[in-house]
Each structure stands twice: as structure tokens, then as C-alpha cells.
Design a protein around this nucleic acid. Structure first.
Ligand SMILES: [Mn+2]
Ligand SMILES: [Mn+2]
Ligand SMILES: [Zn+2]
Ligand SMILES: [Zn+2]
Lengths: 146, 146
DNA sequence: GTTGCGCCTTAGAATCATTCCAATTCGTTG
DNA sequence: CAACGAATTGGAATGATTCTAAGGCGCAAC
């Protein structure tokens, strides 16, 4: 199988979401987004750069950083941080937690029932108004997947 | 009122916990720990350095980093990270979440019922064994407290 | 009470992800 | 086509943290 569909339109309206923010759709932005959707293993900017370069040899690391920031700004991907390590990027938009495997360094998505997020928010004392909650597990995963 | 009790023994067995790990109690380690206990506002290493220097002018930033790491290793303080910002340090040992105020940059402790932590852990799929959960809220705090 | 030895501290260099900058290129509009 | 701002690029700069090498200090054995 090939690595990427050559001319497939993007699953969602990438161009649309960009336009909504007054931004242009560029080959670099499309490819960076495509790479994130294709292999959802929470790659770092460097890893995205490595995956993107073969298809667009002229792209620069600075541009990868720019594209990633743009995608985050447009709410197309989430930036995920774990203990000062390099930022990772996640195209999974529905609320979820992350499990960081200490043994392999891999980051896994953990789906949580929305009610749990609600219960967490409900615990905030008066005066605290959260517009985001982040949940991270750390430990060992015995899964034989990936 | 004075900033620090001059010769007060530390609230908990700092020397003891250090000894348990085969480490010595030093003036630097005691002072760094004291500073964390005295003002529990989740200071960064730089901020700890600034608070410690007046009382121990010869101390170096490297030593502050060393002491903080030692205290974390001995489970006397927690390291708290938020979005690639500098690591902050928290002497509150009971499980709790953090609220990061976007407006002021302040970090607040949020106590959560242990049952909530348990419910979160219970959501982990089979094969995932977490030995730590981290919960961070981000938003605005309207509290008039510090 | 000296010596030996390992733990600690220290200053400064090195690291590394990320950001900044200035210059060029590209797209779109007039 | 000409003009203009948006986007990309390579390289320099940043900033928190870590590393390194060199001294100092505390404690135990002699
Ligand atoms: Mn990165
Ligand atoms: Mn710091
Ligand atoms: Zn994710
Ligand atoms: Zn705390």
C-alpha cells in the first residue's frame, strides 16, 4: 500500500477551517495535517518533519512548527505535553485523556465518558472557571498493539 | 513578621527522608525545602533561587536544581508542568489537581475527592497500569485571594 | 587529629525544543 | 503585468535545564 493518497481531498474541510480564520490552504499545511491524520501516534514536530520531508523535500522545520501552530489555532489538532518533553500533536478532537507509557515512551489516547469530565469540572470551587481540562496517566501498558 | 523561622526544625523529617534514601541533610536542601513550605505558590526553580539567595548568598542555581530534583526523588515535593513552561514545585503531597490561571499565570491547588481519582483509573482499558494521574485545569480564576 | 573518600556544591559550558528574524517566494487582487 | 500581504525558509537567538570538571566538606578509619 502507498503511504499517502496522492490527490485525495482531506477528510474534513481543512481549507474551510483555515479560510474561516482568514488563512490560506498551502501544500505544507495540508501535508502536515495529512501526516497527523495518517499515523495518529502523537508525533513531535521533529517526527512530523521527518514524515513530511520525503513528500515535500524543500519544507523547513520552521514551517512545520508554523503549520502545527496554525492547525492548533484552528482547532484541527491538539498539542499534548508531558513533563517538559517535546510537544506532541494529536488530531483526535473529542475530549480524551492520554496515557504515557514509561517503558516505550508511547502516548495512547484514552477515551473517557463525558460525565467524568463534567464531574471534574463540578469539583472546582466557586470563582474558578475552566475552559479546558487535561488528564494524563503515566505507567506501563502491556498491550501488544502497535 | 520575619520571613523564616531562624532555627525551627523542619515540620517533617526532611533529614529522615533524605537519610532513608542514603542522602545527607545539607543547609541548601533544608533551605530549598523550607522555601517551598513557606510560600506554597508553586514557584519555578528561578523563583526558588531568588528566595533562597538572600539567606544563603553563596548558593548556585545548579544547586537549586539539584536540591529540587532530590526533593522530588525523595517524594517530598511534586514537580508540576504546564505546557512547556518552566517546571514548578509543589509541597502538597496529597493527591490534587492544578488550576492554571491564564490571566495571572498563577497555579492553584484543587482538592479532589479520592473517589474521582479512582473513577478515572477505573476507566483505563485492560493492560494499562497507571502509577500516576495528573489533572490540570486551565482558565480564569475570579478569586480575590492572592 | 590527620587522611581518605565519597557526597555536595559550584560556575560555566552544552543541550535542545522552540521562537525569532530578515530575506525570499507565492498567491491573489487590482 | 504590478503590487501587496501572506507564507515559507535558513539561520540566529532564547531559555530552561542538564552536564562537566573542579573544589569543598563531612565523616569514618587509622
Ligand atoms: Mn517537537
Ligand atoms: Mn524552572
Ligand atoms: Zn490524543
Ligand atoms: Zn500543587
Amino acid at each position: 500500500m502507498s503511504t499517502h493518497a496522492q490527490h485525495a481531498p482531506h477528510p474534513t474541510g481543512l481549507a474551510q477551517k483555515l479560510a474561516d480564520s482568514g488563512l490560506r490552504s498551502t501544500p505544507q499545511r495540508e501535508l502536515v495535517y495529512d501526516v497527523l491524520l495518517t499515523k495518529r501516534d502523537h508525533p513531535t514536530a521533529d517526527e512530523v518533519f521527518a514524515r513530511v520531508k520525503p513528500e515535500l523535500p524543500g519544507i523547513s522545520l520552521a514551517t512545520v512548527y508554523n503549520c502545527l501552530e496554525t492547525l492548533v489555532q484552528c482547532d484541527l489538532v491538539r498539542a499534548v505535553n508531558f513533563e517538559r518533553g517535546p510537544t506532541r500533536y494529536c488530531p483526535n478532537l473529542c475530549p480524551h485523556a492520554h496515557f504515557h507509557d514509561e517503558a516505550t515512551g508511547q502516548t495512547h489516547d484514552i477515551d473517557l465518558p463525558p460525565v467524568l469530565f463534567a464531574k471534574l469540572r463540578a469539583e472546582l470551587p466557586a470563582g474558578f472557571d475552566a475552559n479546558a481540562v487535561e488528564i494524563t496517566f503515566r505507567g506501563k501498558a502491556k498491550t501488544s498493539s502497535n
